[in-house]
Amino acid sequence: MNVYGLDMDAVSFSYPDGGKVLGGLTLRAGPGIRLGLVGANGAGKSTLLGLVAGIIEPDGGSVTIGGLLLGKRTLKEIRSRLGFVFQDPDDQLFTGSVFDDVAFGPRNLGMEEGTVRERTESALRTVGIPELSDRPPFRLSGGEKRMAAIATVLSMDPGLLVLDEPSAALDPKARRRLIGLLSSLPQTMLIATHDLDLALELCDEVAVLHAGRVAARGSAADILGDGELLDRCGLEAPLSIRACPVCGKRAAL
């Protein structure tokens, strides 16, 4: 598998009503890096992810994945390099069975049915739900749906994973399984999340989005331990590093 880095250079984007979301944003993630993207509501996280996947086009600047510049001509190749996991897994699971959903991408890549089956079964094993292969997606629990949604992109063997709020609406055990899974994958990851504890535990680096720009970027511990920065950007320190409400002690980072 090729692991691809991401390079966004001076990217700007405004919605048709004139609302500027991103203004000259520059962001880089080297191959194999897990980069957390945090920011208050409306900071532009989802827009940024949409730009990376070519769902929306930037007004200016460039997006490069694995050295390939994103554009109309390269869109197909770019999309074969990245796996995009939507915030709502129901948006991603639209066929009649988990197997068909996971096989959807490989089949569209024109693979032989034997290879499709191999990849699908492997992706389902990786996320730990091989027994759900024949189940219809609408009968799955939230945690199972999330794993199935991740399997739908893993079956395409992407070098870059883009995840929008991967821990949203998961119970603690399912969230723990998700963190275990993501930390075991070799791909470069761009993870937009409000779950700062997940970012702290999972990400090598964290970028804080504020007012359409990267307000700060650094190691997860440095960024998420900077209370003043987080407060300025409309965020709060992760629960795991706040002082204990009973004894007042802080966990060591």
């Binding site: 197909k76 990245l82 639209f94 991408g105 569209n108």
Partner: peptide, 8 residues
Amino acid sequence: DAMGLRGF
């Protein structure tokens, strides 16, 4: 979008 991203 989810379909297009997976090569539909």
